[in-house]
Nucleic acid binder design. Structure first.
Lengths: 344, 344
DNA sequence: CTTAGCACTCAAACACCACGAGTGCTAAAT
DNA sequence: ATTTAGCACTCGTGGTGTTTGAGTGCTAAG
């Protein structure tokens, strides 16, 4: 693979991202940093097309990058600029003061991203999935009505109302509370599965009947916690870019939670995925740029941008990168057992 | 206003709703129940246009109803068919068995509506706004960390974590609990405003300092409760109908909660509103058909359909009507203090 | 190996035309 | 006085042909 060809490929992708039109040999040859003539470029472009990095919409048109072309560009060719101090300050300001809650912090970052990039911003917090039950409360609230409150180590709080067949007397309630505390404290929410439910109900039923609604309630709450929620901001922006199928965009926005996996299964650092590459990702010609933020060394969530395949990667990636790093340092800087902002 | 003209207007609206094309005099004259000739109809249609009920997209096209035309049609002209027993049974089945939770009941109704009408279905429950605080719990969960649990008469439960400057001893906690119980039980969530917050903080600060985060938390929770949430199902359907602006549709789906007022400020019974009539409603050429359901005599929520202006009102209105009535009777038939399904 | 030149291709833009649905108007019919 | 038939007119739609120009591949010269 020629060195000049790579340079030309990069130039084609750059130009296509800039203009949105198929780019021809002449346009490339006019670029300052390209020294060779249009004819040479034509030959190289033909070769690049042969190799699968470029394609022609039709015979007498310029070239457009293929998936492979983008991939190569992103992974190897592209040079990312540093963010200027001005830009960093601007982003910091958009994140809000030091006293914003963690949730708001991430949402502010998403708002900033969608404003700056004119794409949709997505977030998902992975924390609840791996967190551990730190407290369970059972509170009587009416005739045969009880509210369960479940608090996790990562500061998530969820509640649920349950109806029992009979009212519990003080003794029974205390017994149940004690049992729960003994058996559930420190248990991971992902462990609290159906088998565990059966086991607990079996163990309890020897002492007293039909506490199962309460146990079931607890299990359902931890089930809820396992499903982390994806948020989308500025999704309407995706409708203005016309290389995206509008139906798919709306389906994505409405059923966004089906895509949490996609945001989540990534290593640290910036990731770029194409809609059509991943089997599950619904929007056809889209591109997803995500990175994870951490809280006290542990992955706490993902933040990213969804746009058309020809988004300005050079511009967006540094922003996503900076924001996730900033969030990580803010979150880890404060107390690591900080639950102020989370409520279900 | 001629009687025949009204008949012709009704026929035009009917035809336009059926075909989606501007309707001409000839098409109307071919209808069975219209006895006059095309020429007469032309004259009347010209008159109706003069009066502002019809308009022409361009000179050599048929007529299309204006807002006024639709309004007159809906309010006066349209004849609604009765739902057949078959249809009623079908709807009942779609609502689910008697044992579904209230929330699910409404959601099933929305799902049924979106499936039947091929439009978006919207729901909002007005209950929390008017409900009354029935219990407040304060639970210590860590160093200087407390969780507040707020339960309302309508069965809504919300929680929030608060951080204090100091830890409370048992005595102080009991005092606060007692104070809250004395002062807040039976208070409407809509009363719990900023003034009340100030008053309570002032009253408490004489006894002990800096309980204000807890009080503030309670106020914020009731603030949350005042904002009821709007749900949309089948929003993607709105993209297929091309007389709706796609950008506006997505903005609506994303910022749906800004439109709760619109669903809520209505009298009982079926209401039809046009997007452009109401200042606040974002989707331009849309039409909103809503009705309220009740629970034990009190308005509990709204259920409706959003579609293009030329939706099949005759078909949809009976469905919405039946479903809200059915929901009302199911909800009112069961225990009126039923909170099983609600959690925040 | 690179470059200039040239013939070729093909989508997009434009102009043109015929069609037909629909109208308004007038004059005859009821 | 109202309704109807007839007719000339309007104007958007859709099909066809033509032009244009950007872009290509190929060949031959540098």
């Amino acid at each position: 693979m020629d060195d000049r060809k790579l340079k030309i490929l990069a130039a084609v992708v750059d130009e296509y991202i800039r203009t949105g039109e198929p780019v021809g040999s002449k346009a490339i040859s006019k670029l300052e940093h390209i020294k060779v003539s249009a004819a040479t470029i034509r030959n190289d472009m033909a070769a690049l097309e042969q190799m699968g990095y470029l394609e022609q919409p039709h015979t007498s048109a310029g070239r457009v990058p293929t998936f492979m072309g983008y991939r190569l560009y992103i992974d190897e060719l592209m040079t990312l600029p540093e963010l200027s101090d001005d830009e960093k300050q601007r982003l910091d300001a958009m994140l809000g003061g030091d006293d914003v809650t963690e949730e708001l912090l991430v949402q502010n970052a998403a708002a900033a991203l969608t404003e700056i990039t004119h794409c949709a911003a997505v977030t998902v917090n992975t924390a609840p999935k791996f967190s551990v039950i730190s407290k369970v409360e059972v509170i009587p609230t009416g005739k045969r009505l009880y509210v369960i409150l479940l608090i996790t180590s990562s500061g998530n709080i969820k509640n649920k109302a349950c109806r029992l067949e009979f009212d519990l007397n003080h003794e029974q309630l205390e017994f149940f509370r004690h049992y729960i505390e003994e058996n559930l404290n420190g248990v991971s929410v992902s462990e609290l599965s159906d088998e565990m439910f059966d086991k607990m109900v079996a163990a309890l039923s020897t002492y007293m009947v039909s506490l199962s609604p309460l146990v079931k309630g607890i299990c359902e709450l931890s089930e809820d916690l396992r499903h982390q929620e994806l948020t989308v901001r500025g999704g309407e922006k995706l409708l203005s870019c016309d290389d995206l199928d509008k139906m798919e965009v709306v389906r994505f926005i409405e059923h966004k939670n089906e895509f949490t996996d996609l945001l989540e299964d990534a290593f640290s650092g910036i990731q770029v995925k194409f809609g059509s590459e991943t089997g599950s990702f619904a929007i056809g010609n889209s591109s997803l740029i995500v990175s994870k933020y951490k809280k006290g060394g542990r992955e706490a969530g993902s933040l990213g941008v969804i746009g058309p395949m020809r988004v300005d990667y050079k511009k967006i990636i540094p922003y996503v990168d900076y924001l996730t790093q900033r969030i990580s340092s803010i979150m880890s800087g404060s107390d690591d057992y900080d639950t102020d902002e989370k409520n279900s």
